[in-house]
Amino acid sequence: RVYPPVPLDGWPRELAKLQVSGTELEDPEEPGEPAPGVPVLWLNPDVPMSAGKAMAQAGHGAQLAWWQLSGAERDAWREQGFPLAVRTAGAERWKELVESGLPVVRDAGFTEVAPGSCTVVAEHPALVG
């Protein structure tokens, strides 16, 4: 279900409390390279997002990858426990990813980023040709 984009104080209390907030994190170190064979959700280096927004966009990316997998590929990912990594792409890598044909999350622009902004590319090994 989708609730229309209205200010949070206009949402039912049960729905508003599901929103991610208070999660701005400071990582002292960059994350390492993702393990081989693990799907990676690549964040756009040119679109700043709060931690909550990045979490939502990563979720959308994982869902887009899921929809493009075959039944057997979905079963395999499920059996592995749905491993994945989230990383920010470098500028050149981002350009390659967007042009690769992999699933791309394009934001509707109701919150933090401009409409149509590409925020995440889902690179699942089964989708890489």
Rank of each mutant, 00 (worst) to 15 (best):
D46Y: 00
L41C: 08
G109P: 09
P45H: 06
H60W: 12
A62K: 04
M55H: 08
G81N: 15
G90S: 13
G22Y: 08
E96K: 12
T111S: 06
C118Y: 08
L102T: 01
P4R: 02
G61Q: 02
L64A: 11
K17D: 09
E14Y: 00
K53Q: 05
P48G: 03
V38D: 03
G109C: 12
P28L: 13
Q68I: 03
W66I: 06
A122P: 05
E26F: 11
G61M: 03
D9T: 01
K53R: 09
A16D: 02
V86E: 04
G101W: 13
G116P: 14
Q63A: 13
Q57S: 05
G10H: 02
A91N: 09
G116I: 15
V20L: 14
W42V: 01
E123M: 11
E33G: 06
L43I: 08
W67L: 14
R106F: 12
E96F: 11
R74T: 09
F110A: 10
A122M: 05
E33T: 10
V120P: 00
A114L: 14
E112C: 10
L15T: 00
H60T: 07
R106K: 15
R74K: 15
G101S: 12
V105K: 01
Q63H: 14
G71V: 04
A58Q: 04
V105H: 00
Y3C: 04
S70V: 12
P115R: 08
R87I: 11
W67M: 12
V20R: 08
V98T: 12
A114H: 12
H60E: 04
E123T: 04
G10C: 01
A122R: 04
L25D: 07
A51D: 10
V40E: 03
P125W: 05
L97N: 05
T111E: 01
G10K: 00
P125K: 10
G37D: 06
K17C: 08
Q68L: 12
E14G: 02
R74I: 13
S50P: 08
E26D: 09
G61P: 02
G10M: 03
L15P: 02
V105E: 03
H60K: 11
K95Q: 15
F110Q: 09
W11T: 00
A114S: 13
E14Q: 05
A58Y: 01
Q19T: 09
A51G: 10
G32N: 07
A89V: 04
G59E: 05
V121F: 11
T88M: 15
V40M: 09
D27V: 13
R106E: 08
G22C: 09
N44Y: 00
S50T: 15
A16E: 03
R13E: 05
P36H: 00
A54T: 04
G81P: 15
A108N: 07
V6R: 02
G71P: 06
V121Y: 05
G116V: 14
V38I: 12
D9L: 03
W11H: 02
E73F: 07
P4L: 04
G37Y: 04
W77R: 05
V128E: 11
R93K: 13
L43M: 14
V47F: 03
K95A: 15
E123W: 11
G129W: 14
V38G: 02
H60N: 06
A91S: 13
Q57T: 06
L69D: 02
M55N: 06
L64K: 07
P45L: 07
P115H: 07
